[in-house]
Design a protein around this nucleic acid. Structure first.
Lengths: 221, 221
DNA sequence: CGGCGGCGTATGGAATCCGTCAAGACGGGA
DNA sequence: TCCCGTCTTGACGGATTCCATACGCCGCCG
C-alpha cells in the first residue's frame, strides 16, 4: 500500500486529505511543520510527500532540500503563491509537481496518482535464503533450477514473509486455500512436504521449514 | 539528448517553446493536430510529449489514449480549461502533468525537467538476444528478417523489460490489451505461440519465452 | 501393550491450464 | 470495391497441477 506523508499547518486541509486518500487505499500520516515532517519522513519512509510551502517554522524550499539530501521520493508541493518564479524554484529544487491553492481535492488526488505511477512501489523483500537456495519472491525464482507450482508459491510466500514467527495452520489454510478450507489440514501436510523435498537438503530433517505440532509451521532463516 | 514533441495549433506558442527548449539542449519536433501527433510519436519516438488539448481534429483525451496504448513516455498537457474535472480526466487517462493556459514558459520548462527527471534514461534495454535473434526494442527491429506486429511488440516489450522475472498473466493482459481484458487468457496463449514461432528455434520446446502454468510467463535471457 | 491423534509420504484420478489449428471479423491501403 | 495483414473467437488434445484417499510412522496415554 502506498504511504503518503501530508505536511500542512491547516487542520482542515489535513483532515480532508486524510479522508480522501484513505478512501483510495493510501496509508496516510501527517505533519504540521517542517521539522516534524523531515523527522517523520526519516522514520516512517513514506512513498510520497505532499508538502505545503507555507509552514510556520521552515522555508518550504528548505524542506525540499532536506528531503532530497537523502531520498528520491516524489514531492508534490502545495502553495498559495502562484508566481512562476516560486514554481520554478520549487521544481528545480526537486519537487515533482506544484499545485496552487485553492485547489480541488480530486485534482490533488489525481496528481498524486499520476506522480506515483512513475515511481514503482519499492519492493521491500528482495531475496531470501533457505539453506542452499536463494529465493526471489517477486520474480518467483529459486536458485538451482528448482521450480515451484502456484500453490507452493502462495504457501512459501506467507511463511517467508513472517521469518522466525509461528504461522498458525488456520492462517495458512485461509490465506492459501481460502476460508472454506479452514480445517483441511491434510493440504498443509501435502504441500509442506513438497516444499521440503524441493528446498531442504534433508527433507526428513528440515532445518528451515519447521513444524510446530498442534499449532502450525515456522520459517527459520 | 532529450527529444520533445510539442503538439499545439498555435504557431506562436510552438515557436516560443521551440526556442526555449532548444536553448536548453532539447531536441524539438512539432505537430499541429492530433493525427500527425500520433503518427509523429510512432515514427520519431520522442522522450516526452507536450500536448495541447484544444486540437482541431481529435479530442485531446483521444490523443492521450492513443499514446498510452503503446508507450509510457511522459505527457504534459496544456489546456485552457481550468476545471478540476478536466484535470482529473486527463491525469487519469495517463497524463503526467496538467498546465493551465496562460502559463509562463519558464514554468513549463521547469515542469518538463521535473517530469523527465522521473523517467530514467529512456531505453535501459537497447538490444536483447533471444536465442538466434537480436532484438532492438527502441528501433522495433529483429535480426534475421523477422517481422512482429504491434501487439506482438507490446507483449514482447513487457517480457523483455523484466528479464528472468515472472510476469503475471493479469499484468500482461492489462498492460498489453487494457484493464478490461484482465481474464481473457486465450489472447496470451495465441500471441505467446506466435512469438515463439517467430523467435524460438524450437517453438515446441521454448528456451527463452517460458510458461509458468497457473501464473504467467517469463523471459529467460 | 494397544489405541489414538497428529504428522509425513505415496499415488491415482479429476480439474484446470496450456498449445495448436482453424476460421471469421475488422480495418487500412491499393 | 477488393485484398491483405492483423486481430478476435472458438474448439480440442495433451500436459501440468491440484485434489482426495489411503497408509505408515511416532509419541502419548490409558
Amino acid at each position: 500500500m502506498t504511504r503518503v506523508l501530508v505536511v500542512d499547518d491547516e487542520p482542515q486541509l489535513l483532515r480532508a486529505l486524510r479522508i480522501n486518500l484513505r478512501a483510495r487505499d493510501y496509508e496516510v500520516d501527517v505533519a504540521a511543520d517542517g521539522t516534524t515532517a523531515l523527522r517523520r519522513a526519516g522514520s516512517w519512509h513514506p512513498d510520497l510527500v505532499v508538502l505545503d510551502l507555507g509552514l510556520p517554522d521552515l522555508e518550504g524550499i528548505e524542506v525540499i532540500h532536506g528531503l532530497r539530501g537523502w531520498t528520491e521520493i516524489p514531492i508534490i508541493v502545495l502553495s498559495g503563491r502562484a508566481g512562476s518564479h516560486d514554481k520554478v524554484e520549487a521544481l528545480e529544487a526537486g519537487a515533482d509537481d506544484y499545485v496552487t491553492k485553492p485547489f480541488d481535492i480530486e485534482e490533488l488526488v489525481a496528481r498524486i496518482r499520476a506522480v506515483s505511477r512513475r515511481t514503482p512501489a519499492t519492493e521491500p523483500v528482495a531475496s531470501v535464503r533457505v539453506g542452499e537456495h536463494t529465493i526471489d519472491l517477486a520474480a518467483k525464482t529459486v536458485s538451482g533450477g528448482v521450480h515451484l507450482t502456484p500453490t507452493e508459491w502462495r504457501l512459501l510466500d506467507v511463511l517467508l514473509r513472517n521469518p522466525g514467527k509461528l504461522v498458525a495452520q488456520q492462517q495458512l489454510l485461509t490465506t492459501v486455500w481460502g476460508p472454506a478450507y479452514k480445517s483441511e489440514t491434510h493440504y498443509l501436510r501435502q504441500y509442506m512436504a513438497q516444499l521440503r523435498r524441493k528446498l531442504e537438503r534433508e527433507p526428513a530433517h528440515p532445518r528451515h521449514l519447521l513444524t510446530e505440532p498442534g499449532m502450525g509451521y515456522r520459517y527459520q532463516p
